[in-house]
Amino acid sequence: MFGDLPLFPEQASTMAGRVDALYFYLLAVTGFFTLLIFTLLIVFAVRYRHRPEDPRTPALYANYTLEIVWSVIPLVIAMSMFVWGAKVYFDNVVAPPGATEIFVVGRQWMWKFQHLDGRREINELHVPVGRPVKLTMASEDVIHSLYVPAFRVKMDVLPGRYSTLWFEPTRPGSYHLFCAEYCGTKHAAMGGWVHVMEPVRYEQWLGGEAPGESLAATGRRVFERMGCVTCHSGTSGARGPDLKGLYGTQVILRTGEAATADDTYLRESILNPQARVVRGYEPLMPTYRGQINEEGLMQILAYIRSIGPGQDGEQSAAPAPPAP
C-alpha cells in the first residue's frame, strides 16, 4: 500500500548532501530525546500509578545539580547545531567565483529566466550538471520565493531589490521548482522545472534553438534606445560618469561617502538617481522608474557588467555567433 510513499527527497546539488547530513544529525539528537521523554513518561506512569495503599508522595522539591545538568547539556548540543547550521548556511549564501550567472524575474504567477547568452525561459530552467549557477533575482510585484527542494535551496524574491541564490547541480534530471512565499491567487501554479543536463546534452540544447543576441548586447541596445548613452558617453566632459570599468569598483559620492557600484547601487542609480550621486557630477539624471521593468534593468546590468574591469566588454556585448 505504501509502495509509493516517499520519505526523503532526491539529492541533486552539492548543498543537498550537506543539508541532509545536518538533518540526520538533528534527527538523531531529537529522536533520542523524544524517545527518552516518552520512555520516562511511560515508565513513570506505569511504575508510579496510584495505589490505594500508597503513602504520601515524597517531598522531592528540586535538585540543583540535576537542573544544571539538564540545562547545560541541551545548551551544548544546541550550540553544536547552531555552529554547524550557520557554517552550511554561510556557504549557501556566498556563491563561488566564476559561477554561471542567470537573471530571474518573478511575477504573478511565473518565473522568467534570462541567460547571459540571451536565451530566455519561462518556468523552466536548463542548467548543466557540475557547474555552479548563480541567480540574481527580483520581483515585479509581490514577494515570491524561489525554491528547488532537490537542491535544498530557497531564497525570497523581493520587489525593489536584488537577492541571489546559487547551487551546483550534481545529478542530471528534472526537478521541481516552486514558489514558496504565498503570492496570491495562483501561488500554487507558480512553479516549473529545473532541468539539469549532462554537458553534452546541454550543448545540444544550446544548439537546438537559434540563440538571439547575448543579454549584454540586448542591454546595450536598451542602453542606447533609452538614451542613456547621451550622458554616459564615456567621453571627457560628459554629463554622467563613464560606465566602462565601473562595475564592482568603489565610487566616491557627492556626500563624501563611498559606495560600491554593485547591482543594488546601479539599480538604485537608474530608478532613484538622486539618492547617491557620484562626486564631480550634478544631480541631473531623471528617474527611469516606470519606464523600465525588472527584465530591462537586468539587461542593462548585464551590459554594465560586461564592460566592467577585466571584461572583454565589447566582445561579449556583441551579437553571438550564429549556431553551428
Partner: peptide, 24 residues
C-alpha cells in the same frame, strides 16, 4: 509528548541551513 515533538522540531527551524530548505 506532542509539545516535545513540536519543540524539538523547532530546533530544525532554528538551524539556519535546514530552515532554508524547510521554510514555508
Amino acid at each position: 509528548g506532542l509539545f516535545t515533538i513540536g519543540g524539538l522540531t523547532g530546533l530544525f527551524l532554528a538551524t539556519l541551513a535546514v530552515d532554508v530548505h524547510v521554510h514555508d
